[in-house]
Nucleic acid binder design. Structure first.
Lengths: 195, 195
DNA sequence: GTGCTGACAGATATTGAAATCTGTCAGCGC
DNA sequence: GCGCTGACAGATTTCAATATCTGTCAGCAC
């Protein structure tokens, strides 16, 4: 049966994503995943202590695919205001692309994320830290005038929720959406700018 | 039975709110409302064409109780920046007070609002129009420098969603919440300000 | 005539029995 | 020994029968 392919956590995660895509979140069971891997479901529990932890690992992978390209932008040497704007637009774009291309899978990940809230919290902290870095750079460059980059980063994140928080995903397909994002970005960059 | 009290839409709405509070959204039926009013459920359908329209009317009442005090603030003669800030804080406070005092009823109204999305849309338009008025005043006073008050008002509304949109209600009890609201308000008012 | 009632049809929700799933573990095969 | 299997107990989900609700309307009372 086993076809000489070792059963790794990575392989389980890949197949779990497939199963989630095929069956949907509600219907996908550990037995389904095991069947797709051609092993008994007991073997899956050898790599993940529970169904919840398996789902959490899937959510983590997904969030990492969002944050990795952002981290790359944040690491580039560039004037802070332009870089921050590009970073935010990339964040909006990444989320909005996902929901437009495959709304069903987006809904699945959304519910997954609700369950794995500690993973989401860490992801959010990571993103805010990236923003904080860019703001601190901007202050050093004399482009931004901000009392506390950490507080300002959280504020930027909070103020742009309409465009990256999944709760507002149903508005992302509206034609006014990108103009509204522009308006918020303009306002926020003006708010950060040294004068 | 009828005790000489006429059956008005207003009375039905009041009793419906009671029934919703007592039974919860899922369990509250038109029959329950009729029983509480001591009439047959057919009579309720004489005033509201459907259960959905009855619920919509309840949602509308609720939203009006939010927007009325805000309209009063918006109408006061005062310097625009301070007034706008007070208005936003009142908005945040009104929502947050509701969720803290009676989370169950808040959840009920939230679901109600999801169903009656046209009513909610109108409410949102109303609030944004109030903000637009204050921003236009600020421009006239020379305090704000804004290309298009309508666009800016929508941006202010979008940028403060974390603190007034019910999707984020679970964060409103966090101790960091008011500091975060302060940070966003500071940033936005700086963004609007003439320099 | 006006406004309410109560019986009704079709839609929706509840319930409990049966099926399936999760998580464990003794034991098998390599 | 190590990793997998498959049977098992308890939890969860499904499904279909049953009960309740929504919305209508003919007819009654005032």
């Amino acid at each position: 049966m086993n076809e000489a392919v070792v059963l790794t956590s990575e392989r389980i995660l890949e197949v779990t994503e497939d199963v989630l895509r095929r069956y949907g979140l509600a219907k996908a069971t550990v037995v389904d995943v095991a069947r797709a891997l051609d092993v008994s479901h007991g073997s899956v529990y050898r790599h993940f202590p529970s169904k919840a932890s398996l789902r959490e690992a899937v959510a983590k992978r997904w969030l990492e695919r969002v944050s990795a390209p952002l981290a790359q932008i944040a690491a580039e040497p560039a004037p802070a205001p332009a870089k921050l704007e590009r970073w935010l637009r990339e964040l909006f774009g990444a989320k909005q692309k996902r929901v437009c291309e495959d709304p069903e899978m987006f809904a699945t990940y959304l519910t997954l994320a609700r369950e794995a809230c500690s993973v989401v919290k860490a992801h959010k902290q990571n993103l805010i830290a990236q923003v904080e870095g860019m703001i601190a750079e901007g202050v050093a460059q004399g482009a931004f005038d901000v009392a506390d980059p950490k507080v300002a980063a959280a504020a930027i994140f909070d103020a742009t929720r309409s465009f990256h928080h999944p709760a507002h995903a149903d508005e992302w397909s509206e034609c006014t959406c990108s103009a509204r994002a522009d308006a918020v970005l303009t306002l926020l960059l003006r708010g950060l700018a040294a004068r």
